[in-house]
Each structure stands twice: as C-alpha cells, then as structure tokens.
C-alpha cells in the first residue's frame, strides 16, 4: 500500500500530438481516486502511464517513495483490471490467478493460500478449474479482480472495468468494488467515462478535459461547486441547465428574470441544476417557460422547457401537475455563475 504522487506529468507522442500535460495529483494511501472525463480526454493514457504501459515523456510518477518513470510495469507493484478483463483464455481461473505470483517466484503453498483467499472473497471458488470462456461477464469481472488482489499490490488500477457489463450487473459490481476496496484499503485509481460511476465510487474525483485536469475534489464538492461549465455539464444527470445571462449593477438577468448576485458586470453563463428548479410562488422572481415534454422517471418527472429559445430541464415530484405555460424559479444560492471563458466567477 502506498501513496501515488503525480507531478507535472505529460505525454507527447512522436509526431507532436500531446495526450496529457501538466497533471498534478496527490493520491493518498488507501484513497479511491476516479479519473473521469469524456472519451479522448486522456484519462486512459494517464492510467497507463501510471501502470507503465505508456511511456512518460514529461514529469514524474512516484508510487510510495519510488520514482517509477523508468521501471517496468512488473516492477511498479501495481495490479490492473482491464476493460476487456484480459484473462488468459488458455488458462483455468486458478492458473489465471496464480500466473503473476508464479512469475515472481512465490512459494507454491503461499500461492494456493492467496488464490483460495481471493476466491473466497470474490465467491469464485466454484469455478477455479474452468476456462474463462465458460464464465459469464460478471464472473470474468470477478476473476479479473481476483487476479489483482492475489498480488497484494501497492495500488489497483482500473481501466473502465464495468463498461462491458449490462446495466444491472454494473450497478451491483460497482458496489462490490467499492466494498472490496474499503475492506482491503488498497490505493486505487479508477478510470471511467460514466459520471454516475465516478460519483458513487470515488473518494476524490479528477475531472479531465483535453489532457488537462479541470477539477479535483470530493464527488459532492465537485457536484456542488463545479469550477467550469465543462465540469458543471459533465457531472450530474440530467446535465446542469446552462442559460445565457447578463450582469449589470449587481443584478443578474437570465431567462426573463432578475436576481441579485455579487459578481462583476458582463455576459455570463448561468447554471442551474434540474433539482434546484421549482415552480415560482406568487410574487417570486420567475422565469417564464414553455413546456416541451415530460419524462416520467417514476420517482420524479422531468419537465423539458423552452426559455427564450434555450432548453431547460426541471425535476418535480412524481405527482406534480405541469401546465404548458409555467413560471419557474430557483434560489439565488443555488445558482452557478460562469464567466464568458467558462470559469466559475461567483
């Protein structure tokens, strides 16, 4: 177990294409950090640089006290779970689990002990002698996890491990990964493009955009105070509403309503979470909206509205009646105000 320190990390491919640059992340011992971002943001590259599968062209990665830049993947004391599981198809589950230990010259009795222990934790004891192709997706996922935990490494690296599973299995495996990591207390770095997965798993989120860190923070912190429109729209479902507004003399004009704010005058983007929107009471500042359609989610209903030619989503309790022309409002404290460059300014 160890902390992972990433300093000014960069990757430039031959030919000058830069995949990631200037990454600084301090991952504490035992922490579960999730790298999240849209495809092409460099999150997988970053993970593979930590693993040693991708060469580091700038900066430094330290696992524990060691700088690992020039170490082979095997020498970095990490274990990785791949998106396609990467189980060795010609080996039985038991052989898959013991391969890494055998390569390191672990005594036979110790291998057997660790494999049995991992099989017990992951409940895969019944099919230790099967080949991977005879397993279901969820079982393969467990074996891939098992291969990581038998090694008892300093850190686990996960590369979108759940994206090949169906939705239901994904939710349950997500819970299991979280519980397992808490129990073992192993430092973990997890890559996903699924913001919900990121929110539910992470001790801390690292939101990446175009190869750079956009925001680092606890999931709720990122959710409540996104530093930019990019993070605001990426984290949370449905995506945060983003309306054009203008500030003049301490008053924000947005969607036909005027609200007091304490930011410098100028054009702004105003973010409002769907669940912060509500029907305006009498005498309240209101945003007049036209209902386009309603999505029924069961526990709540999402109204899709049109406000001055822009789209806006608001969440209501399931029994809330909605008319075609409606007045919406939001508490000034729940507003997210971003400057013209997309950075948070309130």
């Amino acid at each position: 177990m160890a902390a992972i320190t990433i300093e000014n990390l960069g990757k430039t491919y031959t030919g000058g294409v830069s995949a990631v640059r200037g990454i600084d992340i301090d991952i504490r011992d035992g922490e579960f950090v999730v790298l999240v971002g849209p495809s092409g943001c460099g999150k997988s590259t970053l993970l593979r640089m930590i693993a040693g599968l991708e060469e580091i062209t700038e900066g430094e990665v330290r696992i524990g006290e060691r700088v690992v830049n020039r170490l082979e993947p095997a020498e970095r004391d990490i274990a990785m779970v791949f998106q396609n599981y990467a189980l060795y198809p010609h080996m039985s589950v038991r052989q898959n689990l013991s391969y890494g230990l055998k390569n390191r010259g672990t005594p036979k009795a110790e291998i057997a002990r660790r494999v049995d222990e991992a099989a017990r934790i992951l409940e895969i004891g019944a099919y230790l002698d099967r080949k991977p192709r005879a397993l279901s997706g969820g079982q393969r996922q467990r074996v891939a996890m098992g291969r990581a935990i038998v090694r008892e490494p300093a850190a686990f690296l996960f590369d979108e491990p759940l994206s090949n599973l169906d939705a239901k299995l994904r939710v349950s495996m997500r819970g299991e990964i979280r519980a397992l990591q808490k129990r073992l207390g192993t430092t973990s770095v997890y890559v996903t493009h699924d913001q919900l997965e990121a929110m539910t798993l992470a001790d801390r989120l690292v939101v990446l955009r175009d190869g750079e860190v956009e925001q680092i923070g606890a999931p709720l912190e990122v959710y409540r105070r996104p530093v930019s429109t990019f993070v605001a729209e990426f984290i949370g479902s449905p995506a945060m509403n983003m309306l054009d507004g203008e500030v003049a003399g301490g008053t924000l004009r947005v969607g036909g309503a005027s609200l007091p704010v304490g930011v410098a005058p100028g054009k702004v983007k105003v973010g409002m979470r769907a669940e912060d929107m509500r029907l305006a009471g009498l005498g309240e500042t209101a945003i007049p909206a036209r209902l386009a359609y309603v999505e029924e989610l069961g526990a709540q209903r999402l109204g899709h509205f049109e406000v001055e030619g822009q789209r806006l989503i608001a969440a209501f309790p399931a029994e809330q009646a909605l008319s075609d022309e409606i007045a919406l409002t939001v508490d000034p404290s729940a507003l997210h105000v971003f400057g013209a460059d997309g950075r948070r300014i309130d």
């Binding site: 693993a51 599968l53 990467a86």
Partner: peptide, 23 residues
C-alpha cells in the same frame, strides 16, 4: 491476440521471452 493480454502479462511480471512462450 488482444494487446491487453500481453500488457496484463507484463504487469503480472512476465518478461518478453516468458510472455511469448506462456501467452
């Protein structure tokens, strides 16, 4: 042969020669 298999073997501590013969 998926590249990830060889990568997994590399992480599992198998050198290039061993990877070739075992994977």
């Amino acid at each position: 042969i998926p590249a990830s298999l060889r990568e997994a073997a590399a992480i599992d501590g198998a050198g290039p020669v061993k990877r070739f013969f075992t994977i």
